[in-house]
Design a protein around this nucleic acid. Structure first.
Lengths: 136, 136
DNA sequence: TTGCGTGCAAAGGTTTTGCATGGCA
DNA sequence: TGCCATGCAAAACCTTTGCACGCAA
């Protein structure tokens, strides 16, 4: 069994991720945020902690097409059951939508029955354009 | 209107992409391939040409979760109508599946009608586990 | 006191850029 | 000949790693 310590840096970073659970946050964003408010956190600390949070399934790691270089992270909101639904992301504005929808579960079942492929809702993000951006 | 020249490097790279249209190819793979067969191509040339092919919608650029660092490219096969269907990718073995399936079109319509979100099949990849890897 | 966490700097891998040269049209 | 393409090297990014020091338990 692994042990881990509670530190100021870790609780601050986790809190920041929780506060921004509706967004996709990059490591750089986190580092900049804490630098701006006057409590800088080391790069390595951020990356290492993000890695372990991903490992513990506390947050998710994404790589989005529009932000090709840097990885995004998102807190997994258990109250919102983020573990059991898909996410859609607008490629224009970055809006993240939680898709609680039976239809996609049906599709998932169909694909498993007919195409013998088990979809992973944690790794899949549906990309497209949101209502607001469609209007423009 | 932009002009562009036909060069040996460009036709070789494009041909290689066409020959591997059923795979997700990285820039490194291309560079290594041409080095191995004795007609090396410059890194910058490969990256610049890939960029313009993406821009012209001749190939697609992907970033996959399992290969977090490098981008993958895939030739858009018009004969296979790759422009009008989704792709599924196995996160275990990398197998790429072309999903010609009415059910997902229904889902796409449903999401557009009910959730006001227009899915982009070019940017979306469904991740999961293929039949072979499920057996293991 | 123990040993994990932190943070700096350096290294690693991927991609981009500057610039002189090469080659298509 | 005009201009785009090439390719080398250097730079720019994002991320990881090594190591000495700090700090939670």
């Amino acid at each position: 069994m692994e042990r881990s310590y509670q530190t100021k840096q870790r609780s601050r970073i986790l809190e920041y991720l929780k506060d921004n659970k509706d967004k996709h946050i990059t490591a750089e964003t986190i580092i900049e945020h804490f630098k701006r408010i006057g409590s800088p956190v080391g790069k390595a600390t951020v990356y290492r902690y993000l890695d372990s949070l991903v490992e513990e399934n506390v947050i998710r790691r994404y790589i989005t097409p529009e932000n090709s270089t840097a990885a995004c992270y998102q807190y997994i909101d258990d109250e919102n059951n983020c573990k059991c639904h898909y996410h859609m992301k607008c490629t224009k504005c970055g809006l993240l939508i939680h898709l609680n929808c039976e239809e996609i579960d049906e599709l998932s079942n169909h694909i498993f029955e007919e195409h013998k492929f088990k979809l992973d809702e944690c790794k899949t993000i549906l990309y497209g354009t949101c209502a607001k951006c469609l209007e423009k």
